Computed example of a mutant assay.
Amino acid sequence: MPQLALKIDVDTYRGTLIGVPRLVETLRRFGAQATFLFSLGPDHTGRAIKRIFRPGFMKKVSRTSVVSHYGFRTLMYGTLLPGPDIGRRCAAILRGVRDSGYEVGIHCWDHVAWQDQVSKADMAWTEAEMKKAVDRFRQVFGDEPRTHGAAGWQMNPHALRLTQRLGLSHASDCRGTRPFIPVWNGEVVQCPQLPTTLPTLDELIGADGVNESNVHERLLELTREPTANGHVFTLHAELEGMKLMPVFDRLLAGWKAQGYELVSLNAVRNSLDPAKLPRHEVRLGEIPGRSGTLLLQGPEFLAPWANAA
């Protein structure tokens, strides 16, 4: 049975408080597994306003209603309102997800700070941000994190190295086509990447005649023929856990009808032998429907010294 992993990014306090419990109930109803990746520090969503100067950002905003998905109050956090500490205020919800049998992992400490700064950050800043997230994960769950999925698919070489140094079992920090071992400028990082392989709802809605009523059809077209490596679909507690939940229901029903086993990232990782995974360069690049650059899986890395490492 082909596998389709569900990766749930939880960006905000509102998404954690409202969207996460709703998603857990929906997943239970369909008998589906998933991986929840949590933002564990302050919600500073309002500070994202500076992205209006990023090429393509306003075009994306015009296609998707930011206020209707995130709520006016959330858009004030970190500016006119103090940002609530998600990990502290929602610890019981986070533990409840784990106790319900779902894989939990780290998305970030401060979502806006990571997404906007990490691509140009130095080792000290990167390590400090990840340390805060790891420490909070330990406080909430009483355990070590095993997986990481970068906010906005934004990474740098220091962050990639830390996925190995922290002893993570797997990560999902980029967009791509199949599981692989990442290579950054010739440096092999021994932490398997399980990239997001499908476009997200907010990348599709509003383009080429796609809307909330038919976006599931576009995604189901992409998964009609199973691939040897399966798929990873990234959804958001703020979207599929709220206004777009009917779309998520239709997707889950469609994927079940197509014969997919809906699994966590951990299930995909457990089906792999890291020693046999291909090595691929990672690079920054653009994808349709999303503003700015993000981490992408590049060509396979075949240098003999890398294979011997």
Rank of each mutant, 00 (worst) to 15 (best):
A128W: 02
R51N: 13
R165G: 08
Q154P: 11
E238G: 01
T234V: 12
A267C: 09
A275W: 01
T12G: 05
T64D: 08
S291I: 06
T293L: 11
N185V: 00
V189L: 09
G259R: 03
F180Q: 13
S100M: 00
I18F: 07
V183Q: 07
D122S: 10
A91W: 12
D202Y: 14
F301E: 11
H111I: 06
Y70E: 07
G19L: 04
R250V: 00
R29L: 02
Q139H: 07
A159N: 02
L262M: 10
S264F: 01
H158D: 13
H216K: 13
N307L: 15
N270Q: 15
V134L: 02
G78V: 09
D208T: 04
R175N: 13
E217F: 01
V282E: 10
V183F: 10
K131Q: 13
G105S: 00
V210G: 00
T35M: 01
E281D: 15
G56Q: 04
P199E: 05
K59G: 14
N270L: 11
H158V: 04
R269Y: 11
I8G: 03
R218K: 15
N214D: 09
D143K: 06
R161F: 01
L201S: 14
G105N: 08
A124C: 03
G78S: 04
G41A: 15
V67Y: 01
L272H: 11
Y102S: 03
D122T: 05
L272A: 13
I287N: 03
T79K: 12
K243N: 14
K120F: 12
E212M: 14
K256E: 10
S264H: 10
S264Q: 03
H148I: 14
V66H: 04
L23G: 00
T293Y: 10
Q258H: 10
D85C: 04
S264M: 07
V24H: 02
S291D: 15
W255R: 05
G71R: 06
E129F: 06
R63P: 06
